[in-house]
Amino acid sequence: MTLKQKIGAAIPYVILVITVLPIVVGYFWLVLSSFSVSTEGLRSTGFTLSNWSFLREPPFGRGYPSIWRVTFNTFVVAISMTLTVVIVSSLAGYALSRLNFPGRKSFLSLTLLLHAFPSVTLLIGIYFVLRALGLYNTLLGVGMVMIGFELPFGIWLMKGFFDNVSWDMERAALIDGASRFRVWGEIILPTVKPGLAALAIFAFISGWNAWLIPRTFTIGAGQQATLSVFLNNFRSDTVAVQWGTVTAVGLFQLVPVAIFFIFTQDLLLSIYAGGAKGGT
């Protein structure tokens, strides 16, 4: 290789490294800060583990819920959201992909419409729905809204997976004597496991990270708080922020998602590309 070619081959790397620098620096600071007394730029003023003491006692003082309580809330919201989204989406996706019934076409167009529809614009209306149901300021209410928002994507994704399942297999099961519901549960669902897994991961991540909806429909840092809301309350402009602790709690929230992602990136990237386009 000539020098010119070498330089040519290096150019893409140089550009990529430069563009990705803010991300790398940001995450580096996050880790650094969580182990530092304080930071100045990218310089630590001293190493400490005390930022992580929140694992033992409430991080921001006695009056606030413990990290475990908040993590538990977040986990409950994320897991129940995941389960519900997966079940409801695969039920509806199955019907839309496989069953013939009056109104099927309209249901399909509707799902598509909602898939592209910006749901955040409805928050004001939802506020009144939750109040009417008595679910305002409850984890259940927050969970239900997040499930609702995730459904159009989930249904469309699952429909795409069901579309690719062999018809003969389903016919065979019907002839063997299964009801449509059993066909769904015993025959079809096990063959779309990758789809279920992908949807579950997407749903879990969005449930775990959610900030806007919990913050809108529950009150701040009470016993009902989820991690994002909780964290944000200690990131204000008015009081001196304990950056060390805030970043440690932030990392604490980020790590499960990052681990999740690293193990499933292949699956997610392909589904994401397909799913965003509306089905695989």
């Binding site: 016919r171 009801s179 096990p190």
Partner: peptide, 28 residues
């Protein structure tokens, strides 16, 4: 179909991929 007491064999075999041969055969 389930009430017609028929058996059917498909070109694609249409076996249930997540079940063993035994589970496939005994599913009905």
């Amino acid at each position: 179909p389930k009430d017609r007491n028929i058996g059917m064999v498909f070109q694609s075999y249409a076996l249930y991929p997540h079940m063993t041969a035994f589970q496939n055969i005994s599913y009905p």
